[in-house]
């Protein structure tokens, strides 16, 4: 093979690998699915596939929000609290006032609440330039406290009619010999949101601004991006996305529990980081994040099928995170050493 062909092949390989190792992730995911299917034929069924998709929906929407924050160089641990706050308050409001504005109306109320809570995060972070992790840890405590003290701490077993009606809706349903496989309708908003976020991140000034701020806030400011305003909007949007995820979670769970969701934040962050987003900001993609979320779900699912007690799931995700990030860190170290070696070669001391 001559040099030209080699470089062409390398180019294809590079393109397949993707900017954030999406290709590598896809191969791992594929290998896992093939391996599991061989080991346990029960895995390779439409039922399992739909179950994995179903369990990924809420995580995926959360992960999209986390992705935006991480690209901008921040980290948000309050999104789960915002989700449950917005969704539970909406259900509670509709229940106590005994009015049902329909699915769209409910969603609008939840989005408004979520956006408002996100604005609190954004205002504190952008105005005072405080560490995002610590601010969102603080607001997480505040939101959770307000929810449980002033809004309600009781489990609501029956959702308002408009939400309950969607609970059992499926995109389609097939009866196979292994059981009934159904794809929940809420997969549609999740997919739409993925496409929307991907489009915004790639093709709009706002999206490019998020990458720019994550890369270097000062450079972004000098390039003409309004850092403060963009940051504020990031957290408002993430709050709204969290609220949507909260509503979808309640629709799929057919109940409203103010103590749900909170505590799983770090799993989502782990999935996003696995999906190739850099914790320092400036890098990350929707495709990678989707693959990261699916990978975590598939691993959880295959552990159960492989007979590993579900108690080990946490450890598995933790190990996956360490291995994934560790490999990236070692690769970064090696490339920086190579650059240094190159510099030394060119400029003999």
């Amino acid at each position: 093979m001559n040099g030209f062909e080699l470089s062409k092949v390398m180019g294809v390989v590079q393109r397949f690998r993707g900017a954030n190792n999406e290709g590598v992730l896809a191969i791992i995911l594929l290998a896992l699915i093939v391996g599991m299917s061989i080991a346990n034929p029960a895995f390779f069924t439409l039922t399992t596939f739909f179950a994995i998709v179903r369990s990924s929906i809420v995580s995926l929407i959360f992960a999209l929000g986390v992705l935006i924050v991480i690209i901008s160089g921040g980290i948000d641990v309050s999104f789960a609290t915002i989700a449950i706050f917005a969704a539970y308050s909406t259900v509670r409001l509709s229940q106590s006032a005994d009015f049902d504005p329909g699915l769209i109306g409910m969603l609008a109320i939840a989005l408004a609440i979520g956006g408002l809570l996100g604005l609190v995060n954004g205002a504190v972070i952008a105005r005072f330039r405080l560490p995002t992790l610590i601010v969102t840890l603080g607001t997480q405590g505040i939101f959770k406290g307000i929810l449980l003290t002033y809004i309600g701490s009781q489990y609501i077993a029956d959702l308002p009619a408009s939400l309950a009606a969607v609970s059992t809706m499926n995109v389609f349903q097939i009866t196979t010999d292994t059981g009934r496989a159904s794809l929940h309708i809420m997969v549609i908003p999740a997919v739409l949101l993925c496409l929307l976020v991907a489009w915004v991140l790639r093709n709009t000034m706002f999206g490019r601004g998020i990458y720019a701020i994550g890369g270097d806030p000062e450079a972004a400011r000098r390039a003409g991006f309004r850092v403060m305003r963009t940051q504020m909007w990031i957290y408002v949007i993430v709050g709204m996305m969290a609220a949507a995820a909260g509503i979808i979670y309640m629709i799929m769970g057919r109940s409203a529990n103010p103590r749900d969701l909170v505590g799983g934040e770090l799993d989502i962050i782990a999935a996003v980081v696995l999906g190739g987003a850099s914790i320092f900001g400036g890098r990350g993609s929707v495709l990678g994040t989707t693959l990261g979320v699916l990978l975590v779900q598939v691993i959880n699912n295959s552990l159960i099928l492989a007979g590993v007690p579900s108690a080990w799931q946490r450890t598995a995700v933790g190990l996956l995170l360490i291995v994934g990030v560790g490999v990236q860190a070692l690769a970064a170290k090696r490339s920086s050493r190579e650059i240094r070696a190159l510099v030394k070669e060119e400029v003999p001391a």
Partner: peptide
């Protein structure tokens, strides 16, 4: 993990937190 592998502390300890906590859950059931 932090000093020799070079993982950012927040991610390294996020991962080990999950691992240690997972071991504790599995251990105690």
């Amino acid at each position: 993990l932090i000093s020799y592998v070079g993982i950012t502390p927040i991610l390294a300890t996020l991962g080990t937190m999950q691992i240690y906590n997972g071991i504790a859950i599995a251990w105690t059931g």
